[in-house]
Design a protein around this nucleic acid. Structure first.
Lengths: 199, 199
DNA sequence: TTGCAATACGGAACAATGCTCCGTATTGTC
DNA sequence: GACAATACGGAGCATTGTTCCGTATTGCAA
């Protein structure tokens, strides 16, 4: 199968060694800074932590969204992949949906301000929003469809809106205040259940 | 009760005429600018629209929150007062709660970015958050209690968290995108309903 | 090894915005 | 009409995002 990395694609002119080093340093630094100052941390802080100049950070990650995505990509992918797995392992589709949603909530609420950034309509985060949605909405749709097919929930819930809503409920859920995003998200998911139409 | 305006209180050294004029101008200008640019509009824009200097705006409204509160005070008060009224006029407490919540959602979603500002953990909006909550949480609590007493919903829902959650669901609900905050809030409220425990 | 072109780097500089401060102007009163 | 209290305006500083360009590194070839 030919050589593995000069694949048949247009061009990926292997990066210079220092560039690779810096990109990794930036990723590490960003992860560290995000924990402390949230995803809105000043660009300068990240650059300084990584020991690089302002120019370098913008060269590698032109928009903040790209940096955030790069930092959290693994976790987003893991969340996406967990969907089908849960569908297979849980008792009912609704249970799978509930667990999957919990994963997502845990992810968001452990990242300072990520939820807020996600919902921000600022153009600066448009890409971020889009990435999360592209990756997760189909999974959500799959879970939703399964639950509908099983007769557990009413049809008609738009997966995109649901994801949007869940993300919103997680805004400001880091840390101390008595606000419990999980609790409210559970309520939301419960609201989806087909009312057990009595008599 | 003595004379009505030199009450027995410490001191309210009647404002100078120009100060009153400017405060009103600022309020009008802010209302106008908020519609176009959201509650995050640059202070300079508001000052310019009102035809006053930077100093003046800060003198009258030291924090942005105070300005926002002043602009929307009437509407917040109206929402608060609607609670008991709905409780009296609607069929059931849960119905009253649902209608009241709708009012609140409509209020938030018609104000560019208000919901976002409300949830922002930025110290700059702490006061804003507190004001809305002080005013509305008791009303929400009253509606919730009534619904619990009527056996419609499970007890234990913290009114503050519920308000927080509703506010959150409204983030980014202005304008175009297919996102329908009302729909999701309805789901949330529906989730509150006592499940018709089958069997 | 050395020379060179391509690539990447750093950080100064510019712009937008929040907020403060103080010399000047307005107002109300005697 | 003069004076003290009050309020005004906007220049100026700080923070943060973003761009630009002279300089330093790197990889390759001779």
């Amino acid at each position: 199968m030919a050589d593995s990395d000069s694949g048949s694609w247009p061009r990926a002119p292997r990066k210079r060694a220092d560039a690779q080093r810096n990109e990794q340093a930036l990723l590490d630094a960003a992860a560290k800074v995000f924990v402390v100052s949230g995803v809105d941390a000043p660009v300068r802080d990240i650059a300084a932590t990584a020991g690089v100049g302002m120019g370098t950070i913008y060269r590698h990650f032109p928009t903040r969204a790209e940096l955030v995505i790069a930092v959290y990509r693994h976790q987003v992918d893991a969340t996406a992949e967990a969907g089908p797995a849960l569908l297979a392992s849980e008792e009912t589709p609704h249970a799978a949906l509930a667990k999957w949603v919990d994963m997502f909530v845990d992810f968001l609420t452990t990242k300072h301000g990520l939820a807020g950034a996600l919902q921000s309509d600022s153009a600066r985060f448009q890409t971020l929003h889009a990435y999360f949605l592209d990756r997760l909405v189909p999974v959500c749709a799959q879970l939703l469809d399964a639950a509908v097919a099983a007769g557990e929930i009413r049809p008609g819930m738009d997966p995109l809106s649901l994801m949007h809503g869940i993300g919103n409920l997680c805004v400001g859920a880091d840390g101390d205040s008595g606000y419990d995003a999980r609790r409210l998200v559970h309520l939301l998911i419960a609201g989806l259940l087909q009312p057990v139409t009595p008599r």
